[in-house]
């Protein structure tokens, strides 16, 4: 077996004196979609933000333990979080296209922000990323329109295109459909299916149905503890742990 793309080892994290994540242990294989489910406040978002070191941007945040990306510890002292985030992209709960930019500029914003956009590449990169995000056909005639003029679902796909444009290995998605209607959600889920294999996707979701639909592996977090991680089919038909069963069948506290 090859080494996992992401290996979370004895990970603890928190804010100030409060520990939010307790001793997480998780391996994520390259090219898979892993869903993180759990009740509000269980630490899902904190967890996903430790994977691209966004967690530490909040005052008082701390992390212990290790997160290995291709066997390299993200929290080693010589790792530059800015460089790391170009390999581990992220999509947020609410679509956040940059309001002052056109659709095209939004897509290449990552390259421009990092000063790695070479002249004359803009069009090609924008088209490739928009095609990957299944948005090209809808916006190809209006690339100069502001990104904020798109519908919510399109904005979210624009944000995915923006993340893909910097060519990451891992894509973190923090409840990417929570602000979208069912059709827009279905488009994003279809997109996740098409990105599988090429990217390693970690998806935090409130919707168990969504986790069941798009992921191969599902991890259940409860009060900062990783209760169970298993094949998604197994988790949703016959979970091992009683707490998982209670949560996914709606018998929770």
């Amino acid at each position: 077996m090859t080494a996992p793309r992401l290996h979370v080892h004895k990970l603890r994290a928190g804010f100030g004196g409060k520990e939010v994540l307790h001793d997480l242990e998780l391996e994520i294989a390259a090219g898979t979609v892993t869903a993180i489910i759990g009740p509000s406040g269980c630490g899902k978002s904190t967890f996903i933000r430790t994977l691209n070191r966004m967690h530490e941007l909040v005052g008082g945040a701390w992390v212990k333990g290790r997160v290995l990306l291709d066997e390299q510890d993200l929290y080693a002292s010589d790792v530059d979080p800015v460089l790391l985030r170009r390999r581990v992209g992220m999509v947020f709960q609410k679509p956040n296209p940059f309001p002052s930019m056109s659709i095209r500029d939004n897509v290449v914003a990552g390259l421009r922000l990092t000063g790695t956009l070479s002249r004359g590449q803009t069009e090609a990169i924008a088209e490739r990323a928009l095609r990957q995000a299944a948005l090209w056909d809808e916006v190809k005639d209006r690339l100069d329109d502001p990104g904020a003029a798109l519908s919510g679902g399109q904005q979210q796909r624009l944000c995915i295109a923006r993340a893909l444009a910097v060519d990451p290995q891992v894509l973190l998605m923090d409840e990417p459909c929570s602000a979208l209607d069912p059709i827009a959600t279905a488009r994003i889920e279809d997109l996740i299916h098409s990105l599988r294999g090429r990217y390693t996707i970690v998806l935090v979701t409130h919707s168990m149905q969504q986790a069941a639909r798009v992921s191969e592996r599902t991890a259940f977090l409860l009060r900062g503890e990783l209760v169970e991680v298993d094949d998604t089919r197994k988790i949703f038909t016959k979970p091992n742990d009683r707490r998982t069963e209670d949560y996914i069948t709606g018998r929770f506290g």
């Binding site: 691209n52 966004m54 941007l57 800015v82 460089l83 790391l84 985030r85 170009r86 992209g89 992220m90 947020f92 609410k94 956040n96 296209p97 940059f98 309001p99 914003a109 990552g110 922000l113 990092t114 000063g115 944000c159 923006r162 993340a163 910097v166």
Partner: peptide, 15 residues
């Protein structure tokens, strides 16, 4: 969320 969006793309503070 806009700041986070930029930071998540690997943008530095001044950018």
């Amino acid at each position: 969320t806009l700041r986070e969006g930029a930071v998540a793309l690997g943008a530095g503070r001044l950018a």
